[in-house]
Design a binder for these strands. Structure first.
Lengths: 214, 214
DNA sequence: AGTTTTTTTAAACAAATGTTTAAAACAGTG
DNA sequence: CACTGTTTTAAACATTTGTTTAAAAAAACT
């Protein structure tokens, strides 16, 4: 196999392998593993059908390649923030802001991840390492410390984390539904989501830090 | 077409049509439209392949039949509660409790609905009437009234409703992920979800009714 | 009984899908 | 240039998929 070493001047003209990956990413995210066909991907990448298997051996292998990248994208950012040496209050706001940005840039990421894990939980096996990092992040102890100090309500990470992530992700998981339901345009949805994000930060921090209110 | 009028004595022996519907419901909810095959459904219903089309003409028609029922199940209960003549505080708790019960009995309902709407938003067209009911329920005016009275924070229904529903539904949308992530058994998940439900009721009402705290 | 209508069955159909083949086009090296 | 390995192509392959057919079985009716 020869890689495109020529990263010199002129138009970069991405390698075929990368073209396939990018097309596959788009198609899988939009249609899911079951809904996406090899020909969909080939067409989206403007390449011959046989090339998907030439480079990735099978649809399943190509999918796993994309899926693992998506799981990284889904978890890595939040893990980084959880390990930042900042206050809990800042951290929660940061986590929600990051989640919002991630969803804004990848509106179907959450639905895609949830769906594929639901359909085939074993596929997550290769990424169990990433999930373990959540357990062993600074977040759990930081939270426990604040609880012990009495600065926040008594709550465990297993309950706080879904609270932090559900609000933004649910908006995008149900984006099509919300837009139909409230008859929003794309622009109106963005505006709505942005406002919602701030409300959610407000709600969670207010709930958590109940004792140190104005 | 002859219906099974014999609802007299002896074993009821559901009509073939109903057997197909029940099997299709199970299979579609678990695998989605794209992932479910006609043969999957026929096998789950223990009937001949040709019968699915004999009774429902096509996979698409059978799916829409099920999908519409699922949309009703998804929305009707919440609409009923939104129209109950009870206090806002009670109503929010009722909505969350109902959502929890619904998700407990149909763990993959929310993911299924979100997914199919995302893949094909037009399919929701037949159920736009149901959605309009949400707009015209007592909920929006009741909320606005409380805001005007100053008993609750200023917030609109379009923001409060996702807050109410996201927490429980996200738990079940990501049930497989949560269970893997925190290494929970089915029983532990139920316990976790139940506790979470109460936390969420607490958080939302505390946030909303900030002025009438102890 | 016989006749007609409804339901069920096995088999087949055409189209779509993941994958492979074998040859052509390309690129690099001597 | 010829030679070698790599990449791309069109065509084909075997399965699977949704759907239909035509006959058999069951039920309903007279």
């Amino acid at each position: 196999m020869k890689k495109n070493m020529d990263c010199s001047l002129s138009l970069p003209s991405k390698s075929t392998e990368e073209r396939i990956r990018e097309a596959a990413k788009r198609v899988f995210l939009e249609k899911g593993f079951d809904g996406a066909t090899s020909r969909d991907i080939a067409e989206a990448a403007s390449i011959n059908i046989a090339l998907t298997n030439y480079y990735f051996r099978s649809k399943e292998k190509l999918f796993m390649n994309i899926f693992e990248e998506m799981l990284q994208l889904f978890f890595n950012g939040m893990i980084d923030i959880m390990n930042h040496p900042i206050s809990l209050r800042e951290k929660i706001a940061e986590l929600i802001n990051h989640d919002f940005q991630l969803m804004k840039e990848n509106p179907s990421l959450s639905l895609f991840v949830m769906n594929e894990i639901h359909r085939n939980p074993d596929r997550m096996a290769s990424c169990m390492g990433v999930m373990k990092q959540i357990h062993h992040s600074m977040f759990e102890e930081q939270l426990q410390k604040e609880v012990n100090l009495g600065t926040i309500r008594e709550i465990s990470a297993i309950h706080l984390m879904p609270m932090i992530f559900c609000n933004i992700q649910f908006l995008f998981i149900g984006k099509a539904m919300h837009m139909k339901m409230w008859q929003m345009t794309e622009g109106q949805f963005d505006e709505f989501a942005d406002k919602h994000k701030n409300l959610v930060i407000d709600m969670i921090t207010n709930y958590l830090f109940e004792f140190e209110k104005a």
